[in-house]
Design a protein around this nucleic acid. Structure first.
Lengths: 347, 347
DNA sequence: ATGAAAGCGCTAACAG
DNA sequence: CTGTTAGCGCTTTCAT
């Protein structure tokens, strides 16, 4: 318990540096001493102290993930799990661990937590989630020259790399789909306009209306938190309008679920009375009643590519700025009035 | 960029130890030097190197979470997110971060990853998920005297603390509910019998049948992975029986979803032809068609209590073994044939 | 109240 | 191929 490199060295009758070399698989070590050291390591159940190693090598084989506040609200949206699944699918292959910056108790802002994560040297790079408009986190990252990748689009010019969907186009496509179904009054359930993703999706909605010469009615746009409750109350407001929408684009599936619940309570039938399209195509979507049409933006892929890009920066010192766009595709089910077979999908 | 304690010290005209003291809020520092040091820290944008600190203090303000292999399969079940939500709700208050041990690329087993996490000294304590029967991880934890808490019940006597549900009783209650609805042929969709939770839930099912003098038919028990696909194929097998069950207890909601899909494809109507009860009451459950009756075991609470217990061990050196049982409650919706109002629930 | 010095466990020149 | 030496950046006695 708690043996260190010196203990192993003296048991094997060599110097600490030799032990260090066999641990690191240094080539120029005689087979004989290598064996002897290995035996000593096993006998003492020696495990190298990663902290000490980290201190001298200045790498930690760990990447950091900054969970934006409020933390537990973030976990409520399946977005996080999907992202993390993508991220870990590459870290596990490359031998990296993932540090979640959660500590917030002492009233730390996201900026302070990011500064701390960088300054504390516990991670070799950082993945940032959920970029906000005029996000101060971006400039912190730039100033510090830390390897990092943003999941989402920065709202201002920046030198840091990012992965994103073409959210403008995705919302455009979703809205167009409803227009092609004959809808002219289409409501839009938006997430907070502080988030770039919300801004982009709203602007795609606008563009689609404009292209088809449909009038734009600000009353048809409701902003809510990315929570089911937000979708519910937003929808209630839309349905209370004298000239209610006949179709809804929700910029997140959880909003769409809330919207469906509100519609159900008021006695509207989906898709006959009201068409709904969600965003993200979470697993939930296919189990909804009726199964929900949703824009799949391949969140796991966002995470996967972000992690790959980050590890590239870290291991290859490849700091050139890269931006990647992940494709989207509309998964048509029954909530939008399309005539599709009642299919059964696996998770 | 990259200033250290010495840089701050010389700028402030003091010794490194003094800087260290003001960082640590040491009381016996004159107000004047404290100010001077703070100014220097701010000017250099100094952030203490947590790695160096960790090396000497032997604490990291980080707790480790060992994600069992296969990692990405684990993320597919919402169990993980809920657990993590509970865990982070306490770490964020207490100023701890969370390290996910994911690195697995070089063919590491769970044991090796645990050993590494402990030996590497990057975490002050460990939360273990998903205990298996005869789990070797448990003995590793015991031997190393690391602060740790198990989420789940250990299958053998052990000195380590754990949090769990009374899964035997929970499955008993779920099964009893179906029996009270008049069912006598009740199928059981189990997760892998290598997991303690599966064993417990199956034994609760047994006990309920026994208590009501119902015959036990091994054909009614199907074991599958905790994935929707597992529930689907398991259900297909049950429904192919000459004397098919009229009700199902699924030991996980994702299994129940797969079961519902299979039943749907074969033209069975739920709950009229077939009653189903799931386990975990994930958010999905209430959005199912029909809304799913499910045993809520309060997973976030498991995570929360586990984290609290762990931090207690770490900060108070409170190593006494503790075991906590989190209550369960059946959330009755429409998939089990109970006559309940079609209610609408928020997330 | 502050500084000097030793050392946490490891790696990396530099010698040999 | 292997050992010696000098740190990595910080905390912590022990002095003063």
């Amino acid at each position: 318990m708690g043996f260190n490199i010196k203990d192993v060295a003296s048991l094997a009758g060599v110097s600490p540096s030799t032990v260090s070399r066999v641990v690191a698989n240094h080539p120029r070590i005689s087979e004989e001493t290598r064996e002897r050291v290995r035996a000593a390591m096993k006998e003492l159940d020696y495990h190298p102290n990663a902290i000490a190693r980290s201190l001298v090598k200045k790498t930690s084989e760990t990447i950091g993930l900054l969970i934006p506040n409020p933390i537990d609200q973030f976990f409520l949206n399946p977005f996080f799990t999907e992202c993390l699944r993508g991220i870990t699918s590459v870290t596990e292959q490359e031998g990296y661990d993932v540090l979640l910056s959660t500590s917030n108790g002492t009233g730390f802002t996201d900026e302070m937590r990011l500064q701390h994560m960088i300054g504390s040297k516990r991670v070799d790079g950082i993945i940032l989630l959920n970029s906000k408009m005029h996000d101060p986190l971006i400039s912190i990252l730039e100033e510090n020259h830390v390897p990092c990748v943003l999941i989402g689009r920065p709202s201002t010019t920046t030198s840091i790399s990012w992965v994103n969907n073409d959210n403008v186009k995705a919302a455009y496509d979703a809205t167009k789909h409803l227009i092609e179904h004959g809808h002219t009054r289409i409501g839009f359930l938006s997430g907070s306009q502080e988030l770039v993703v919300s801004v982009d999706r709203l602007s795609g909605y606008h563009a689609a209306l404009r292209d088809r010469n449909l009038p734009f009615d600000p009353n048809l746009i409701v902003t809510a938190e990315f929570l089911e409750q937000g979708g519910y109350s937003g929808m209630m407001r839309l349905l209370a309008l004298p000239d209610r929408p006949t179709a809804i684009v929700a910029s997140d599936d959880v909003l769409a679920f809330g919207a469906m619940r509100a519609a159900g309570e008021l006695g509207y039938h989906i898709p006959d009375d009201l068409a709904i399209i969600g965003f993200n195509d979470m697993h939930l979507a296919k189990m909804a009643n009726p199964p929900m049409t949703s824009m799949n933006v391949h969140i796991d892929e966002l995470g996967k590519v972000a992690a790959e890009m980050l590890l590239d920066q870290i291991t290859k010192a490849n700091r050139g700025k890269r931006t990647v766009i992940i494709q989207h595709n509309l998964v048509i089910r029954r909530s939008c009035g399309s005539q599709v077979q009642p299919t059964y999908e696996a998770f």
